[in-house]
Design a binder for these strands. Structure first.
Length: 760
DNA sequence: ATGCGCCAAGTTTTT
DNA sequence: CTTGGCGCAT
């Protein structure tokens, strides 16, 4: 018992010792929350509670892995279930699929696929998208689902104009998904929430099965998640939630900060523990964070304090443009590594949006710094990967229409848009999957014989693929590539330059399959592989042990910490983002976002902004973020890398920065006028164009090996052992080495990613 | 049916 | 600067 409490503070001990009944842990940043949670789990186990009665729900897989590791160290071999909400629901849904009208091999559609399904639903519903976009419709439906509003409910609700369209599409979309035996991310939660609500017996069973539920990042849960957790904590209200209202940054995704603010009302017998001591950051950094977050009205006040020694003041820097910003940061990092015995992995650079990482990449590459970009799902968004995945999805679930439409003519096999259109019409009319329609293409009179033959040969190939469905994922994928001539297709279509990349991506996909097989020698299944791929999040990709500079969005940085942090682009309209300025609530969320970023830093922190930032080529003047004016100047050092800036230097009122000087006034006015002009010129209902987010590319940094490897170099790989480089293709971060291993296998690796060592 | 090339448009955060 | 949508030519 005592060893679990060793070195813990009073409030931490209280939390660890809490066994039964609701528990609310308000945990500030860096307050040792994970430590407390893992020790508490160990304590529960020690009190004789069976591991299978405990469930820990986290925000990312990464967090779950981390927790699992630490619990394992305290209480080895205990099968406590830990994972994300979505994975938990996916698992429950596998078991109880028939109860909601699905079969157990249902597919999980990602955002892009679900958008395709929405488009089709619009067609079927004969809804005109001229005044809205699939995106907007998808957003409304998603929001509704997060708030537990089903299609039927929405039909009877009075709604706004753009919601009317969505209300019409929603039931059709839902029907399509059910026919396709598919769910989207929101459905995973919604189905389970409805299941628990409508089936009292099952609810009671599961409530008693999962007696001890722990929820991490509770401030980021939405109503659906709230309902699920609640339903499982009625008879056994041993619900413990951990969170920090000041770190709620997912409101736009339906997260409801009231879930945590009102927890004490929901569970009157709750025990509340506040973890306010910070073990992570210097007092400087903490004061800056604290001062900033005081600007928010809607919050529970916390005092943040630390016993850590004073450190360097927080640096606030302005640059002429983003290139100067990137170059300076890269050079300083390189310098610190040379002079101060730092390592690349000590550094992180945070951005408000992914596109801002571009210039940083260039700068880091120029300085030869290894880096990793965490914007993870991008790999799985690439066309070639999505194609292969779509085949796998279709094999796993023949009803998956979106997957079918994606691959029926990829590589091109003479089945054109019109033929697909006709198949789809039949499918819509008879409410059957398109594949079933394709099976009887010969009987459909609108389809010419020529086309019907091609469709038939596609179906035949599909059936051949299905025979391999139970093989290992690797075998299946290799067979698939072979059978579809996919490599040949890539070579035929891409430019020379792309070619290598795309082929290397396919290699990487195969490697992922191999890896999955390796990790699941017994229990692996296609279904589970697909589920795992669908539910990876970007932060899951971040590798702690990689000695690289980390580049990520502020959102992705939640839950992590780094000795030295740079936050770039602290500019008006970027942070707070232009699109989150409609309400004070949104501004507060942006403020929390910056708060999260600041509190990731252990020793040093730099915030920076530019005077010009070129977005799509055109440089535009920039106004520093209003948040900067809220920061305590005495804890900071202002540096102007661009001498012409006098935004801060010539401010005659250091204690009231909200009084701008003349030049700022001018800029403000300019910006204000421009904004007003844009507002005036906007047509009443803005017509948005459907925009499918695509992978620009998933880039790894040049590892120190890039450039070192040559044909003939002998290298070692942690899993495959030693081997010889047979060829090298691509350059920079895309450099790919094909290696013949001593066991006779040939594998290709992105040098920047792979864990290779040069032997000679 | 396919493939090319132009044009236009759009730009947050993500399970 | 990138991406996707669309029209035209083969």
């Amino acid at each position: 018992m005592d060893d679990l409490l060793q070195g813990l503070t009073e409030p931490q001990c209280e939390a660890v010792n809490h066994i039964d009944g609701p528990l609310l842990m308000l945990a500030g940043p860096g307050s040792g929350k994970t430590r407390v949670v893992t020790h508490r789990i160990a304590n529960l186990l020690r009190q004789g509670i069976p591991a299978w009665q405990i469930v820990a729900l986290t925000f990312t897989n990464k967090a779950a892995d981390e927790m699992r590791m630490r619990v394992e160290a305290l209480a080895p071999g205990q099968p406590v279930w830990m994972g994300t909400f979505h994975r938990f629901c996916a698992r429950l849904l596998r078991r109880y699929a028939p109860m909601v009208g699905l079969s157990e091999n249902y597919s999980i559609l990602d955002a892009a696929d679900s958008r395709m399904a929405i488009k089709r639903a619009c067609e079927v519903a004969e809804v005109s998208l001229s005044h809205t976009s699939p995106d907007a419709v998808a957003a409304v439906i998603s929001r509704a689902k997060n708030r537990l509003i089903t299609a039927e409910m929405m039909a009877t609700m009075p709604v706004k104009y753009n919601e009317q369209v969505a209300a019409q599409v929603y039931p059709v979309y839902h029907q399509l998904m059910m026919t396709a035996n598919a769910v989207d991310f929101d459905d995973l939660l919604l189905h389970v929430a409805v299941l628990l609500r409508e089936n009292g017996e099952l609810r009671a069973d599961l409530d008693s099965r999962y007696r001890y539920i722990l929820v991490d990042e509770y401030q980021d849960t939405n109503l659906a998640q709230y309902a699920i957790v609640r339903a499982l904590s009625i008879d056994y209200p041993n619900l413990s939630v951990t969170g920090d209202p000041d770190q709620s940054i997912y409101g736009w995704r339906g997260a409801d900060i009231n879930n945590i603010l009102d927890f004490e009302n929901d569970y009157p017998t709750v025990k509340t523990v506040r973890l306010e001591q910070n073990y992570r950051s210097t007092p400087n950094i903490l004061r800056v964070a604290d001062q900033l977050i005081r600007g928010n009205r809607r919050r529970k006040h916390k005092k943040l304090f630390t016993a850590n020694p004073e450190g360097e003041p927080v640096i606030l820097k302005s640059y002429r443009d983003s290139k100067a910003e990137g170059d300076d940061i890269a050079e300083r990092i390189a310098h610190a590594i040379l002079e101060e015995n730092c390592h690349p992995k000590d550094f992180a650079i945070f951005v408000r949006m992914n596109s801002l990482t571009r210039t940083l990449e260039h700068a880091l590459r120029r300085c030869n710094l290894p880096y990793q970009i965490v914007n993870g799902t991008e790999f799985y968004q690439r066309k070639e990967i999505k194609d292969l995945l779509a085949y796998l999805h279709l094999i796993n679930n023949p009803n998956h229409d979106v997957a079918l439409e994606r691959v029926i003519n990829v590589p091109p096999r003479g089945i054109g848009a019109t033929t697909v259109q006709r198949l789809r019409q039949v499918a819509n009319r008879e409410q059957i999957p398109i594949l079933d329609a394709a099976r009887k293409a010969g009987l459909i009179e609108s389809i010419p014989k020529r086309s019907a033959v091609k469709v038939a040969s596609f179906v035949a190939m599909y059936d051949a693929l299905c025979v391999k469905a139970t093989a290992t994922i690797e075998d299946l994928v290799l067979y698939l590539i072979e059978e579809t001539d996919y490599r040949e297709y890539l070579e035929r279509t891409g430019d020379d330059d792309q070619d290598n990349d795309r082929s290397a991506n396919v290699d990487e996909f195969v490697t992922a399959a191999v890896e999955y097989d390796r990790q699941h020698p017994e229990d692996g299944s296609l279904e589970e592989f697909l589920e795992q791929v669908a539910l990876v999040s970007s932060t899951d990709q971040w590798e702690e042990n990689n000695d690289r500079v980390t580049l990520m969005t502020l959102h992705a940085s939640k839950g992590l910490e780094f000795p030295r942090v740079y936050i770039i682009g602290v500019e008006d309209d970027l942070l707070p983002h232009a699109r989150s300025k409609d309400s004070e609530e949104q501004i507060e969320e942006e403020r929390r976002l910056l708060f999260v970023g600041i509190t990731r830093a252990r020793e040093r922190l730099q915030l920076s902004y530019c005077q010009n930032r070129s977005i799509h080529g055109q440089g535009r003047p920039v106004v520093p973020s209003p948040f900067l004016m809220e920061l305590p100047r005495e804890d900071m050092r202002q540096v102007d890398a661009a001498p012409e800036s006098d935004f801060f230097d010539e401010d005659p009122y250091p204690d009231s920065w909200d009084i701008p000087n003349d030049e700022d006034d001018e800029i403000c006015q300019l910006v204000e006028e421009e904004r007003a002009a844009i507002r005036r010129s906007k047509p009443a209902p803005p017509i948005a164009i459907p925009q499918i987010k695509t992978a620009s590319q998933m880039t790894g940094g040049p590892s120190s090996l890039v450039g070192q490897l040559k044909t003939g170099t002998t290298v070692a790989h942690p899993r495959h052992g030693e081997g010889t480089v047979v060829s090298i293709s691509g350059r920079g971060p895309k450099c790919t080495a094909t290696i013949l291993f001593d066991d006779g296998q040939t594998k290709s690796f992105r040098v920047a990613f792979a864990d290779l060592r040069v032997i000679r």
